[in-house]
Amino acid sequence: MRATLVQVGLRGLSTVQVRRVRPVRFGAAGGDVARVYRELERDFGVLAPPVALHSPAPDVLAAAWVMLRETLLVPGTVPRAVKEAVSTAVSEGNECPFCVTMHSSMLNDLVGGRDGADRDPAARAAADWARAGASPDTAAAHPVPFPADQAPEIVGTAVVLHYLNRMVNLFLGELPLPPGAPAASMVVVRRVLVHLIKSAERRAPRPGASLDLLPDAPLPGDLGWARGHPAIAGAFARGVAAVELAGRRSAPEEVRELVSAHLSRWDGRPVGVSRAWVEDAVAGLSPGHRATGRLALLTALASYQVDQGVVDAFRAVSPTDRALIDVTAWASLAAARRIGGWARTS
């Protein structure tokens, strides 16, 4: 597919929105980064900043893309409006205004008006299920509003958004606008982006077409909800393996063990406004690993609490953009997998 003039014009505006790391520019991209960028424009409609921000770590970029593509973008048995309702509800719960703006805009356009989830009974039921799924107690008590064969698409969409919300909170602003752009311009920007995304949807992306970006891998046991859908299972198996490798590459083992231990006890609820809990948690780490532990724990459990000071402290020991993406992606996906693990599907 040849890029439109609008898509070409948005390329620079997409990457300039990313903060705290320097994403690969479209014109400078090569190899798998260039391929993902082209596929983003073809299948998503635009060089989406939530995916492009991963470009300093090409394997993590590929992982984020294949998981998002197979769940949200590839047509299946679940209507796109239902997936957008789940995406919006998850993003609201994670306090990710960037993602709320994008997914609610798409949802409202699909159902023909504001408050899209309220206008579509199936979308409303799926959104309620996604909100209840934020903690194991409420997830267990909430009825499942979809048949079992739709679980890979719906749970997969929720897991991907729990992952992306955390990354977006760290690396993007509150609105899908370049720095300095007036908030009033969102009216036009929203209209253009929704048009591009819907145009890409009409081309019906083919299942599994991007899986060869990453090597085959076994599906972890906690992702059992993906079984029965080969493309989604393949995307998550490969994506998780790539992100796990990135975690081992840039996060010390004692940091990964600390985050895993906290997630195993986490009930999905907010940890509170104060960050005293994280200081207590990292006190037992080796001094040289505390900055990494602090960043990883906050990313997993309270991404909205990550500020520039936390990032600067991490960069003092791990200065590369790739390391920053590695650690935050690993922590984000670990939390998203934990939430997906308690999701009810029947």
Rank of each mutant, 00 (worst) to 15 (best):
A62L: 10
G224L: 07
V8M: 13
T138D: 13
N169Q: 11
I232S: 02
P230F: 06
V271P: 11
L333T: 01
C99Q: 02
R315G: 06
A127V: 08
V273C: 14
S105M: 09
R265I: 10
N108A: 09
P75V: 15
R69V: 04
G208N: 10
L214Y: 02
R338H: 15
W225G: 04
T320V: 01
N94T: 08
R249L: 04
C96T: 13
L211C: 07
R248Y: 07
G208K: 09
R131K: 15
V310N: 12
S185A: 09
V271S: 13
R202N: 01
S199P: 07
Q305K: 14
I232Y: 03
F314G: 04
A276E: 10
R227M: 03
A151H: 08
R203C: 00
L72S: 04
I154E: 03
R338T: 14
A85G: 09
L175K: 00
V159R: 06
A130N: 09
V100K: 09
L110S: 15
D109Y: 12
R203F: 00
P230Y: 06
R131D: 15
T4K: 03
W330N: 03
A140K: 00
R191L: 15
A323F: 06
N169M: 13
R38V: 01
Q7C: 04
L13C: 05
A241G: 12
A335G: 06
I325H: 13
L324F: 13
L193D: 05
P319H: 01
R42P: 12
C96Y: 07
W129K: 03
R344M: 05
A117R: 15
L47N: 01
D222K: 08
V6W: 09
L110M: 13
L61N: 03
S274M: 06
A237N: 11
R190T: 10
L40K: 03
T138L: 12
E279Y: 13
A331K: 08
R337H: 00
L10N: 00
V271R: 15
A141V: 03
T138F: 07
V278P: 10
G208A: 15
R227E: 08
H142A: 14
M1D: 14
V168C: 02
P220Y: 09
M106S: 12
D312V: 14
T15K: 00
W330I: 03
I232Q: 02
Q308S: 13
W65T: 01
R2C: 14
D149M: 14
E84H: 07
R202M: 01
R19W: 14
T71E: 10
A117W: 13
G247H: 00
R80W: 10
P145D: 08
R124F: 09
P176L: 07
L5R: 12
V60D: 02
A81C: 10
T345H: 02
E70K: 01
